[in-house]
Design a binder for these strands. Structure first.
Lengths: 143, 143
DNA sequence: TTATCTGCAAAATCTTTGCACTTGG
DNA sequence: CCAAGTGCAAAGATTTTGCAGATAA
């Protein structure tokens, strides 16, 4: 759903945030790199190529803003840096396969957790709003 | 399985690592705080109470060692610090419920992913060795 | 004895903050 | 115009590293 530029800009305007050139650049980088799990620094490096004046601070603040708006998700794969991924409605059925040998992160689609979330509400009184599922192992190339 | 002091020490000896007083303290802290997801600093604070000379460096190095031995797992819940949890064989069926309001982390037991992991091997050629499943939402108290 | 381990201090990362200047609406 | 946004430099927070002295086996 929120996988295009205008949809994200509308969300920003709705919440009275300004559309700045820096924010446009960052949003476009995220859109051009769906499923790549970029880190703040990787986004920064790409952004520098477009506008060399753009600062790291703006990257972090814009990413925080997009996370707050719910269009971006923070991810951690254990390499010490936060990574980011745009959210769309299918993301809820989208999980990660992390290779312990080469570090590559693949995607895996599967909707199986909805029934489980209902059970968690019944058993524990915990209302699930989102989930993250990661599988660690050896990818086909490394095997 | 590896949920007692002697079992962990045996693992250390097997790999020719020494049993030092510092390592004993750290292992005991982990054993006394199962399911608490302590951070390095929290472990350090407890350890300081037992031996004030024990340094942060030793905490990090010992935790890394235990992770390498497979008796300890690193966790990240998004608060910027790595947390640690001792592994036993049931851990594979043990997931986390993270409350987005109060930050509390509860446990949830459920074995449901084994069949799925077989499917991942068939479809993607990715051999799963471990998984992490987190649910984000609102806990019973915050609701 | 001696390879391993420890603690300190310093460095390396990653992320956040204060502040003066700039700018989108 | 002016509240919101930006960039810089500095600070914070967490984790890692170099090295000299200590110690388990």
């Amino acid at each position: 759903m929120v996988d295009n530029f205008d949809a994200i800009c509308s969300k920003l305007k709705e919440e009275k945030y300004k559309i700045t050139p820096q924010r446009e650049i960052i949003i476009n980088i995220l859109l051009d790199n769906l499923n790549k799990h970029l880190s703040a620094e990787e986004i920064y490096d790409i952004a520098k190529g477009i506008n060399p004046d753009l600062g790291m601070t703006t990257i972090y603040r814009t990413l925080d803003l997009l996370v707050e708006l719910g269009v971006l998700q923070k991810l951690e794969f254990g390499d010490g840096r936060t990574r980011y991924e745009l959210q769309d409605e299918d993301m809820h059925h989208h999980h990660h396969l992390i290779c312990l040998k080469c570090g590559k992160v693949e995607e895996f689609e599967m909707d199986l957790l909805e029934a489980l979330e209902q059970k968690i509400l019944e058993k524990k009184g915990f209302e699930v709003m989102d989930h993250k599922l990661k599988f660690y192992g050896t990818c086909s190339e490394c095997r």
